[in-house]
C-alpha cells in the first residue's frame, strides 16, 4: 500500500505495509538515517520523532498511524549552522560521545525544554527515563540542558 506522510514539511510516500514500524519507513524508504533503530521495544528512545509535536517512539508506531499528521525527524529540527537551543547546549558542553542516542535525545528534550524551560534537575532526569545513553552517564547532558534556562535568565 502507498502510505503518505507529511514529514519535515514535505509530502512523501512509500509503498509499504501499513503496519510497518514508522522508523523502518523513515530509515529504509525515505533514507532519513538520523533516526536510529536500536531497541525496537520503546525503551531506548533513539528512534524518537515528533508526531504533531509530541515525542513518539517511531519503532512502535505503525506507519499508518502517522498518516495525516506532521512527522518531524532529527533532520527537521536543525543542523550545523542552525542548531536549536538543545543541540547548541549539548555541543557547548562537550557532551557527545558515540552519538547514536543523541538524535532521539535531542527530539525528546527539545519538546520537553520548550514545555518546561525552567525544569529542575530532578524533573529533567525523570523526563529522560525514555532515553538511554550508554556512553555519557547522563549528568553532563543534564548540565547542558540546565544551562539553557540559565542562559535565558541572564539574557532576559
Amino acid at each position: 500500500m502507498t502510505m503518505r506522510l507529511f514529514i519535515n514539511g514535505e509530502e512523501r510516500s512509500a509503498a509499504v505495509h501499513p503496519l510497518t514500524p514508522l522508523v523502518d519507513v523513515i530509515r529504509d524508504e525515505l533514507l532519513l538515517t538520523g533516526t536510529k533503530s536500536v531497541c525496537r521495544e520503546g525503551f531506548c528512545g533513539a528512534c524518537t520523532v515528533h508526531i504533531d509535536g509530541v515525542p513518539t517512539m517511531s519503532c512502535l508506531l505503525p506507519v499508518i498511524a502517522a498518516e495525516g499528521k506532521a512527522v518531524t525527524t532529527i533532520e527537521g529540527v536543525g543542523g550545523p549552522g542552525n542548531m536549536n537551543a538543545v543541540q547548541h547546549a549539548l555541543e557547548e558542553h562537550d557532551v557527545v560521545q558515540c552519538g547514536m542516542c543523541f538524535p532521539g535525545m535531542v527530539m525528546s528534550m527539545t519538546a520537553y525544554m520548550e514545555r518546561r524551560p525552567a525544569a529542575p534537575r530532578a524533573d529533567i532526569k525523570a523526563a529522560m527515563s525514555g532515553n538511554i545513553c550508554r556512553c555519557t552517564g547522563y549528568e553532563r547532558i543534564i548540565d547542558a540542558l540546565l544551562s539553557i534556562a540559565a542562559k535565558e535568565d541572564t539574557t532576559a
Binding site: G34, E75, G79, P80, Q87, D94, V96, P103
Partner: peptide, 11 residues
C-alpha cells in the same frame, strides 16, 4: 569535538 554538530543533527 568536531563530530558533535553532525552527531547532534543525525547527519
Amino acid at each position: 569535538r568536531r563530530d558533535a554538530p553532525d552527531k547532534l543533527a543525525g547527519r
